[in-house]
Simulated assay, not measured.
Amino acid sequence: MATALKTIAVPEVTPAHADAWHQVVTASMAEDLPGVPPPTRNQSYARLSRPGPGSRLLTWLAYDTGGGRTRPMGAATLRLFDRLGQEHLAETELHVHPDARRRGIGTRLLSAVVDEARSQGRRSLIAEAPASGAADLFCVRNGFRRALTLHHLLLSLEEVHRGWLDELTGADQPGYRTAAWNGTVPDTLADTFAAAKNAMNGMPTGDRDHGALSWDAERVRAVAAVVAGRGDTLLTVAAVHDDESDGTARIAGFTEIVIPGGTAARARQYDTAVVPAHRGHGLGVWLKAHMLRRLHDEYPQVTEVETDNAADNTHMLAVNEQLGFRRQRTSHEYRLTLTERKEPA
């Protein structure tokens, strides 16, 4: 049967575009990431139409128009970061339907992505690929260099004894108490929560050229609004330190979980960080145990939690493995240099 390939840039994502994206991604993930649940159609549309704050998302679709019908065969996005400290950075996600591979679709989509990233003045383009797979080889062939290795871990909550979580959360943490909320941080903690978020700038990022990200209360609220707008549930547990010298309550660490659609069986670990001045007290395990207890008690439909850690983030890997997370797979983040880094004069 004759085939004809057509690649289009999507000026504004509609439900029909999101459905085409969803078809390609579902087939691609079934081939490359068996066992990893693909997004639902609603989640695909929400993701494409509501990018995170401080960024823009551009979309391309490739169709096979031969044989009198139109079938989506490839999809790509380019996320352009506009926030201060990351204006040089862009990320891409690219999928090709297994039935349409080795026909130049991926190359054509990548060319469109790279041209646009360059035209937007970006210095680095980041892409993630499962280790030792077709996407891994595609990145290497197209000039990307490996920047970071990620271990993906999964926790089965059915294997975590509720009594053990009580023991972990009941352990004495002198000088600290917990605060928990759903969605947006309470106003009284917004500024100190943003300050704690800045502790993530010290996490390993390999050679990603990630830049430094500055958090404030406005950005914290904006991220929560995006998560809610996608129909997901954001849970946060924080460790609060009450400073006796001035009576100020400051967040010393936190952990976040997102439940896709609010009802999914597999939750996703978002950010976890402990402020440097408060490290060495076991707050990471303590906070994560509190979060797992919340899931047990308030969200019984959640049976799994997935997370990922940089391979050289040995401390957080140890925390997660102590709680029962097990390594499922490995992926690599690749960086394509678009323009040379300019050193300050």
Rank of each mutant, 00 (worst) to 15 (best):
G170N: 02
Y334H: 15
G66K: 02
T184D: 00
L165A: 12
Q269Y: 09
A195I: 01
D207P: 00
A249L: 09
S111Q: 10
I105L: 12
R327H: 15
G163P: 05
R41F: 09
F144E: 12
A228C: 08
T77R: 06
L287A: 13
R103I: 09
R279V: 09
L287K: 06
G74H: 11
V237Y: 06
T7K: 08
D242Q: 03
Q173W: 08
E158T: 14
N201K: 06
L283Y: 04
L338M: 03
Y63N: 03
A90W: 02
A252Y: 02
R118Y: 07
W60I: 05
P174V: 08
T192Q: 00
G211W: 01
V319R: 05
W21R: 14
A171G: 03
M203N: 04
Q322I: 04
A134L: 13
R221G: 01
V275C: 07
W21H: 14
R177V: 11
L78V: 07
Y176H: 11
W286F: 14
K6M: 11
E244I: 09
A252I: 10
N313H: 05
A131G: 04
V114N: 04
R326Q: 09
G261R: 06
R146A: 05
M73H: 06
V223S: 01
T92Q: 15
D99M: 11
I251M: 04
Y299M: 10
A9G: 14
N42E: 15
A171P: 00
T337Y: 04
I8R: 12
S331D: 08
N320D: 13
V96C: 07
W181Q: 03
R341I: 12
L168R: 14
H95M: 07
T263S: 13
G175W: 08
Q43S: 11
L213W: 01
G66C: 07
A46R: 02
Q173N: 06
T14Q: 04
T149R: 10
T192W: 01
A100G: 10
H278P: 11
H296Q: 15
R341A: 12
L78I: 13
A179Y: 02
R118E: 13
R145W: 08
A267D: 13
L5S: 07
V36R: 11
F81P: 00
R326H: 09
H210R: 08
L323M: 05
L157T: 12
G68I: 15
G262W: 09
V185R: 00
M200Q: 03
I257E: 07
L295E: 11
A135G: 04
Q120G: 10
H315M: 06
D166V: 07
L94F: 10
R221D: 01
N201P: 05
A27D: 05
A90H: 02
P53G: 02
G253R: 03
K342P: 05
L295Y: 10
Y270L: 14
A318H: 05
G324H: 08
R47W: 13
P15I: 07
L89S: 09
D191C: 00
R101K: 06
T178A: 10
A190C: 02
D115R: 14
L157V: 14
A252W: 07
S111I: 03
R41V: 07
L317W: 06
Y299A: 10
T272W: 10
H88D: 02
E306K: 02
R268L: 13
A277S: 14
P186D: 01
Q269F: 11
T303L: 12
L94G: 06
T26V: 13
G253A: 06
A112Q: 09
V114G: 06
D82Y: 00
